[in-house]
């Protein structure tokens, strides 16, 4: 009886304890509805389609079991696309992370003049749309373009290299382009965190006689570990989903010689090409999702972070 007296009766209506919970749900509702329709329902529908032979236009769904998935693993082209995508990610993600970290470290060092100007200039590539960026790079790298002219005038080689149509180069050009355009974004993320790094850490290290490299290695990098996890994860997801640059580069064909074919481009080709293969496209997309999930988890573990807490 005494206990009951002590605890106040929960107030009714929207102001009570229960009411506050309900209020929270009401505020969450719009976002929840949007997520339910555009994410959850879309994913469930894609899963459903991946087990069917689909004709979107006549809305015919014909159950085909695991056939689409079996086809993915039997398809040489899908394996090529997967190989390209993995290679792309393997080179781009570490490069963009390391370069972004180094630039951010340099820009956060005290005593550098014109810091703000550098930050602005370095950030500019991120503001460029990737479509425009691709065209600019295609101009720079084309057979009579500035890069070839420059390298020839330096006397490095005699005949211009066909960077765009030579399968040995085309994916690498896209890699350079992607690194160049994503580094500034990650650099900013790193900078934001470095601003919070107490200067006393560095001062203490200096007293102990640490070099700039040692400060970076033993203070900055460990301090930024959670941020690095974020950068790596978004980098992996972004590179595995690379589509627009490959699409513009190859006019949607994934060429030359399948060298710029990524999984996302292949999904597009099968989903919106002039064939009724939406089911196969969905199966590819599901496989891509699983791969991204596994790779992301592995990276997170390797980076020694317990997730983004």
């Amino acid at each position: 009886m005494e206990m009951q007296k002590k605890t106040p009766k929960p107030a009714r209506g929207l102001n009570g304890e229960h009411g506050q919970v309900w209020q929270a749900y009401i505020f969450l509702a719009p976002a929840f509805v949007i997520a339910a329709i555009f994410f959850v329902a879309a994913i469930v529908f894609a899963l459903y389609m991946s087990f069917n032979h689909v004709n979107m236009i006549s809305q015919q769904f014909e159950f085909s079991g695991l056939k689409n998935y079996v086809d993915v693993f039997k398809d040489d082209v899908a394996m090529t696309a997967l190989k390209n995508t993995a290679l792309f990610s393997l080179i781009v993600v570490p490069s963009q992370t390391i370069i972004a970290l180094l630039i951010a470290y340099a820009l956060s060092t005290r005593g550098i003049k014109g810091k703000k100007l550098f930050r602005l200039v370095y950030f500019l590539p991120t503001l460029t749309s990737s479509a425009a960026l691709t065209l600019i790079f295609m101009f720079i790298f084309n057979i009579t373009g500035p890069l070839n002219n420059f390298l020839i005038s330096m006397g490095l080689y005699q005949h211009p290299i066909n960077f765009l149509q030579n399968p040995a180069y085309s994916l690498k050009v896209i890699m350079v382009m992607n690194i160049w355009s994503t580094v500034p974004n990650y650099m900013t993320v790193y900078l934001a965190s470095l601003v919070d790094l107490p200067e006393s850490f560095y001062e203490a290290a200096e007293i102990d006689g640490a070099s700039a490299w040692q400060k970076l290695r033993y203070i900055t990098v460990p301090y930024l570990r959670p941020i690095t996890t974020y950068v790596l994860l978004t980098g992996i997801i972004g590179t595995f989903q690379m589509f627009d640059q490959a699409y513009i580069f190859s006019n949607g064909s994934g060429g030359p010689d399948n060298s710029t074919l990524t999984i996302a481009l292949m999904v597009y080709q099968y989903a919106f090409g002039s064939m009724n293969t939406m089911g196969y496209a969905c199966a590819l997309a599901v496989v891509l999702t699983i791969i991204i999930f596994v790779v992301s988890r592995l990276t997170e573990k390797l980076n020694g972070s317990n997730g983004l807490r």
Binding site: N162, Q165, N166, P167, S250, N251, G252, S253, G254, G255, P256, D257, N258, L261, Q269, G273, S274, M275
Partner: peptide, 28 residues
Amino acid sequence: GTTAATVNTSYQNFVAKALDGKTTMKAA
């Protein structure tokens, strides 16, 4: 026919390699 777009995509994908002389037209 209905497959021209698909064949064309594949053609564009491989023809450059042969025209570059990297491989024979037949292989491409």
